[in-house]
Each structure stands twice: as structure tokens, then as C-alpha cells.
């Protein structure tokens, strides 16, 4: 099985049609994938290391183009977009990386504000918004700290805050609990669920933490050797 197409009406938030990906001359890491995700859906992506989870996410946050097939986000065919349009589309996507990818020379406040600085906004315009978000992720007291002085869990929450500051329509998280303890992992997952339910953000989380997946009621997409091998609409809570 290579399809994940739940019943839906209207434009999907994410749509992959016959998508394959191959790096240089290596074997395909993703093969002929057909995926559709509803706007406001919450989906887990799982699979063993090397199954293609990160590669699939790279296609979704527009770090790579597929070798074959079509990736559509919010109804837009990404291969048809110009570079400026791709940049604009990226601003609708928030990404949380396993290794955080925080900028070491910027404070927590400045890391969160980065996507807004990129848009040319002034600090006076976004200051309150950034402070509120830092408080929401529990970093209100650490906003002037540099990333290296934060714990793994704090860095992860900082990366989440940065991904959310633009109020993205799609939030992609790659192993967001990989570097934190189980308790912090649950806290981070609850943040994602809260965001999904309160704001309606489409959320895709790649993880191999099955214990955490079982605690949340959401569809699970399982990849193996670049193929979808199982999808479960609703895991028991």
C-alpha cells in the first residue's frame, strides 16, 4: 500500500501525487507516494531509522524537490512556483528540527523573532507577540539567554516557539522529542495538540516514539523503505 487518502472535501493542506525521491545516483528513498492531509489534521509519521521520514518532511518543508511526482501545499503546485513564491509559501510552514537548528549567537528572544526579522518587521512591532509566545512555551524568564545556556528541553521549546511565531498553517516536527526526557516529550506533544485544536494548524510529527503516539488520538502514517506500509486513522488514546 502506498496511499494515504482519507475522505475529505475541499482542498487538502498537503497533497503528494506519485512522489518519489532519489539523492544523486543512490536508490530511491521515497517511492511513488500518494498522500492527502486535511487542513487542521494532526498526523504522526513513523517508521524505523532510514525509512524515509526525514526525506518526506524535507519535501513538505520545501528543502528538496521530488525526483518524480507532484507536491501540492494548500492547493499550490510547488514545482510551478517561482523562487519568491516558494519563499512566501515557506512562511506558512513552521519547522521543528530534531537538532533544533537555533542560531547560537542570537538570544532566545532573537531566535524566536527571526522569521519576523526576515519579513522586515521592527522589534517594536513584534516584541509583545514574541514575549507572549516565549511565556506560552515556558521560557518567559529565559528570553535573554543564549541557546547554549538552555537545557535540551528548553532549546526544543524555543525551536517550537520559533516555528510558531509566524502562525503557520502547517507545522512540521522532525523527532521533536528525540533529545528530551519522556516527561518533557509529553509536554511538547501537548503543546502541539493544543495548537492544533485551538488554532487549527495542520500538524505533522515524525517520531519513532510509539509510547507517546499511543497516548494521543491521531492518525499514524508508517513508512518502511520509502513506502507507506500502514496507516491507522485513530490510535487508541
Amino acid at each position: 500500500m502506498n496511499r494515504f487518502r482519507p475522505d475529505m472535501t475541499g482542498e487538502p493542506a498537503v497533497e503528494l501525487n506519485g512522489v518519489s525521491l532519489r539523492y544523486d545516483t543512490a536508490d530511491e528513498v521515497l517511492s511513488d507516494l500518494d498522500i492527502r492531509l486535511k487542513p487542521g489534521s494532526f498526523t504522526f509519521l513513523t517508521g524505523a531509522s532510514g525509512a524515509g521520514k526525514s526525506s518526506l518532511l524535507k519535501l513538505l518543508y520545501l528543502a528538496h524537490a521530488p525526483t518524480h511526482g507532484e507536491v501540492r501545499l494548500f492547493g499550490l503546485q510547488t514545482s510551478a512556483l517561482k523562487r519568491r513564491q516558494l519563499s512566501a509559501l515557506r512562511r506558512r510552514i513552521g519547522v521543528v528540527f530534531q537538532d533544533f537548528r537555533l542560531l547560537d549567537h542570537l538570544t532566545a528572544f532573537e531566535n524566536v523573532a527571526l522569521p519576523l526579522r526576515v519579513l522586515g518587521q521592527k522589534e517594536s512591532d513584534y516584541r509583545d507577540e514574541v514575549v507572549d509566545l516565549l511565556r506560552w512555551v515556558g521560557l518567559g524568564e529565559r528570553m535573554h539567554a543564549l541557546p547554549r545556556s538552555l537545557s535540551g528541553g528548553e532549546q526544543q521549546r524555543l525551536a517550537i516557539a520559533r516555528a510558531l511565531i509566524n502562525k503557520p498553517d502547517l507545522l512540521i516536527a522532525d523527532e521533536p522529542t528525540g533529545n528530551v526526557d519522556p516527561e518533557m516529550g509529553q509536554r511538547i506533544f501537548r503543546l502541539f495538540v493544543e495548537l492544533n485544536r485551538r488554532v487549527g494548524t495542520t500538524v505533522i510529527i515524525a517520531t519513532h516514539d510509539l509510547a507517546l503516539i499511543r497516548e494521543f488520538d491521531a492518525p499514524v502514517l508508517r513508512l518502511q523503505h520509502g513506502l507507506i506500509v500502514r496507516d491507522v486513522e485513530h490510535q487508541p488514546a
Partner: peptide, 16 residues
Amino acid sequence: KDIVDVLHLAGAEDRF
């Protein structure tokens, strides 16, 4: 490259 990648994924245009 790490900074360029982060800026790129944050939606920064090439010109920026």
C-alpha cells in the same frame, strides 16, 4: 550554511 538554511526555511528571499 546552518544560518543560511535557517533563514531560507524561515522564508527569507535570496536577495535578503
